[in-house]
Structure formats: C-alpha cells, structure tokens
Amino acid sequence: MTTFASNVHRIQQVIQATERAKRKLVVVGKSMVRVITIATRLGYIDAPKDIFIDVDQIGKYRDEQLTILTTGSQGEPMSALTRMAKGAHRQISITEYDTVIIAASAIPGNERSVSAIIDKLHRIGAEVVYGQAKVHASGHGSQEELKLMLNLMKPKYFVPIHGEFRMQHAHRDLAIHTGTAPENIFLVDKGEVVEFTNGQARKTGKVPSGNVLIDGLGVGDVGNIVLRDRRLLSQDGILVVVVTLNKKTGEFVSGPNIISRGFVYVRESEKLLEDANELVSVILKKCVSENVNEWSSLKSNVREGLSRFLFEKTKRRPMILPIIMEV
C-alpha cells in the first residue's frame, strides 16, 4: 500500500484495516516512518504498539500476515516502491501473489513516472489497484469548501498557494466572488516576496529560488556551463585532436591524432576521420605560414574548421577539444 506520507487520515485507515485483518504492519520509507512516529506521539494516530514490526523481521511471517505501507506513490526514482518494482530493494520483493494499492492520484507532471511504476508492477504479475478503482479521494478542497473557508475567514489579503498556476488563478476568482478586493490578492511565483508591514501588504522583489543540484559530493556547484557541456556530450559526443609542434620551427613533430568518443564508431568511419585529420593538418599549416602561433588562435581555428566540416558530413556537432603540445 502506498500513499502520501502526509495523509495521516489514510495512514490511520491502513492501520485499522491491518488490525481487522490480524496482520502486522511494516512501514518502509524515511518520510513515512517519520510522519507516523510524530503523529503517534502527538495523538493523531491511534495504533496498537504490537501491530508494527521492523522490515528486518518480515522473514518471520507469511505473506498473508503482512501489510507493507510504503512511500513512492508518485513514482519517485529512489522511493521504496520504485526499488521494489525494479527488484532493487534489499528486503522486500514483489511477486505475482501480491496486491499493490496506490492510494494517491498523480500530481500534474508525475503521470509518466507513476504510469511506469504501474507497468513494472503488472510485468511482475502483481494485482495493482489504483485510480479508476476509486481508492483515493482528492485531498484538495472543492470550490464550495473553499468558498466556505473564505466566507468564514473574510480575509483582507489573500495569497493562494500550492498547485499549478491555473489552479491558483481559479482560487483567486473564488476569493473575488466572495468579496475580497482584486488588488488585495497576490498570485506569486517561487521566490517572489509578499511583505506585510503595519497591516499593509505589497510585493517586494524576489529571493533566490529554484533547484539545487547535487552531484556526487558537491551541492549547488554545478552551473549552467557545466550542464550545457554535459548536454552536448550526451547528444553528439566528443572529438579530441592531439598535435605536437616543434617550439623553435613551428613544424609538426607528431599528429594530428583524432580520438573519438560517443561521436562515430571509428572502425566504420575511417574515411571520415582521415579526411578530418587531413583538414586539421591543412588548417595548422596555414596558421604556421601566416605566423599565427598563439595556442588559443590555433585551437580556435582547428575547432571552427573541424566543426563546420563534421556538421556538413554528419549534421552533428560533437564537442571538439584541440590539444597542442610543444617540444
């Protein structure tokens, strides 16, 4: 069974159903464990203490004696349900004898990942109960409920949050319908600031916001330029051009040698790479004859000439890294 970890009422229903079926409940997923721990301590969840067992104890029980409550209702790549569906979870494996209940609707934008998880579960042979089985009612208030809230609160200022912009816009229209002044309603994007001072509200600029990229041990240290380079590498690959020049005479000592990775298969593109090799030689000889001997200029000429040639031949633009050494 998977649902939103924040849906405490649904978690309580799972506990009650598990108790009636005389099963043990295994909670998997950090956010689910954290919510249940806090909600139980605060009295929002009522559960017999002996109903919970640790995931390491599931081997002591038959399948029909267990309920597994897990995270992953939105098909998150690293969630427990996704790892189970891929057969990558260390302790739990889903089989064709299992029933998986997805008590959550797909958040806009997550439809593809949720659909992929459902497909994987069906491939295993499990019975999957979701969406059309009406196992999930929306956690969002309907228009009449929102109107009731607005009529009870009678807000001077109103800032609709959560959901897509179109939903916030519809919420704004409801607020106007119930008497809130249009100029006192703020539709804000991420990072925009609404400041309240002495009972008055106004928009006052933006604060930094957006995705924080985690790459290995680095947090937020991967910028747009690095991401652009990675995108280019993933699309058209890379060519490394290695040339060695005589420092005194400017003549070639060795090369040019072209190394291709992710661009073309060398054995099937020998003619293309030979022509590219010859072109690099022509470009460098021309530069030497014109007394162009700065490394940056040499590299730039090689990069531009080779890029045009390869695009004409392949309609692809690999990343080109000229390496010029002097001896």
Rank of each mutant, 00 (worst) to 15 (best):
T2C: 05
A5R: 04
N7Q: 03
Q12M: 07
A17V: 10
R20L: 14
A21W: 10
V26R: 08
V28E: 15
G29Q: 11
V33K: 10
V35D: 03
R41C: 01
R41V: 06
L42R: 11
L42Q: 07
G43Y: 09
I45E: 01
A47C: 15
K49R: 05
K49A: 13
D56K: 09
K60T: 02
L69C: 12
T71Q: 03
Q74R: 08
G75L: 01
P77A: 11
T82V: 10
R90M: 13
R90Y: 04
S93W: 00
E96Y: 03
I102Q: 01
I102T: 10
I107V: 13
N110Q: 14
I118Y: 01
I118F: 02
I118P: 02
I118W: 00
H122R: 09
I124Y: 01
I124E: 07
Y130Q: 05
Y130H: 13
Q132V: 15
S138T: 11
G139E: 03
G139F: 00
H140V: 11
S142A: 07
Q143K: 15
Q143V: 15
L146P: 00
K147Y: 03
L148C: 01
L150H: 01
K156A: 03
Y157V: 00
F158T: 03
I161C: 09
H162S: 12
G163A: 07
R166N: 06
Q168F: 07
H171P: 00
A175P: 04
A175H: 02
H177W: 12
G179H: 02
A181V: 13
P182V: 07
N184A: 08
L187P: 05
V194T: 04
V194M: 08
T204M: 02
G205S: 08
K206P: 04
S209D: 10
N211C: 07
V212G: 02
L213N: 11
I214L: 08
L217T: 08
L217N: 06
L217V: 13
V219D: 06
G220Y: 11
D221I: 06
G223E: 06
V226H: 05
L227W: 08
D229I: 15
D229A: 15
D229H: 15
R230W: 10
L232C: 06
Q235L: 12
G237Y: 03
I238L: 08
L239N: 13
V241N: 05
L245M: 08
N246P: 09
K248P: 00
K248T: 14
G250Y: 00
E251C: 09
E251H: 05
E251Q: 10
F252L: 14
V253Y: 00
G262F: 05
G262P: 04
S269C: 07
E270Q: 15
K271S: 13
L272N: 03
L273S: 09
A276M: 04
L279A: 12
L284Q: 07
V288W: 00
V288A: 03
S289A: 13
S289R: 14
N291C: 00
N291E: 02
E294Q: 06
S297H: 04
K299S: 09
G305N: 06
R308T: 13
L310F: 12
F311N: 11
K313N: 14
K313C: 09
K315F: 09
R317Y: 15
R317N: 12
R317H: 06
P318E: 02
L321R: 14
L321G: 06
I323C: 07
M325T: 12
M325Y: 00
E326K: 14
V327I: 11
